[in-house]
Write a protein that binds this DNA or RNA. Sequence first.
DNA 1: GGAATGACAATACAGTTGCAACGCAAAGGA
DNA 2: TCCTTTGCGTTGCAACTGTATTGTCATTCC
Lengths: 191, 191
Amino acid sequence: MARRVDPHERRELLADALMRLAAERGLEAVSLRHVAAEAGVSTGMVQHYFRTKDEMMTFALGMVMDRIRRRSQALSVPATPRELVRGLLLQVLPLDETRRLENHVVLAFLAYAAVKPALASGLRESAAEMRTFLADQLRAAGADGVGHEQAAAGLLALVDGLGLQLLSRQYADEDAVAALDAQLALLFGRR
Amino acid sequence: MARRVDPHERRELLADALMRLAAERGLEAVSLRHVAAEAGVSTGMVQHYFRTKDEMMTFALGMVMDRIRRRSQALSVPATPRELVRGLLLQVLPLDETRRLENHVVLAFLAYAAVKPALASGLRESAAEMRTFLADQLRAAGADGVGHEQAAAGLLALVDGLGLQLLSRQYADEDAVAALDAQLALLFGRR
DNA sequence: GGAATGACAATACAGTTGCAACGCAAAGGA
DNA sequence: TCCTTTGCGTTGCAACTGTATTGTCATTCC
């Protein structure tokens, strides 16, 4: 067995195992051996594809952000700005098991990045990206009232906060959606 | 030296050291030895006051939540509901070093509690407490539009999200305050 | 048909972890 | 005065950590 394998595919396999671990037992449970066990491979193989643990973490975080981005882009079917905004923000909320898992991982990495600034840049980027997109849509819709940048930032913060509360089960899914809709009504006008 | 010491005071000393560690180097850096070193005592003493690491973590989290609550209650000088709400929410945002530190710790524990449900209940409680307080104030102010419970939940989520973004330095302090004020204007009416 | 190479597996190693056990000094009651 | 209790320091231990080293194949190229 030589060159036959696709390295990127292997890395994704391992990163998937890492995600499952992080979501179910926290980032503290992520060790080379645990990831290997979860993926059903040897620790040697993990080391083969990630020379260091940090490299593994960085790759996994990048993968998660990439998936979220990709799902959002697949969303850009013709629609009104308001529908676009709502769709995008609903994409981010943890309303099903896959996105629960992803949000768990993002939360874990958020706490991790608060201490390891090298990882924070990726998170910052994708947030900024989403913020300008939201602001553009708000402008296009002619949303009145507050500045568009500010409203976009507020929406993003709202969704982040709702996500947090959903994760810790303080809140039912439909209540979170209702809170989001209420805010959209305030910004775009009722209905 | 025997009975002279106040056990609770000692525990707070140790929990303080834990907080500093968690804020500066993350929860992963919190070990019995590190906490002992940071507090300038022996690991034996840490073990004397906390029989297990989990007991130490739980106590520290409780202490942080207590401090936040206490600061909020000290705030209830006569004021209009709107001022009260603004004051309370500004209390929660990480706008100075102490509160940055506290928010860091809360974030770390949030990620931790997402995996250790035993710790989550405390967080849930204090959030619910704050939500009903906010809803009461909104009702008292006769804020129109959306339901009061929903608006309160939205405000809380907004502040949580803003806190997250402030912590990861995605955002300037004054922008966060502006976003909060914009939302208050939407709810209470301009000015 | 070697030789080189890529893909792993196994093991070793030094450091760190939570926790238990033991030790001992000082204060108070008997 | 003894003796128990409280408060803490020290040491030890088994488990686990990230990383480095080495070994073992199967495959591909010359």
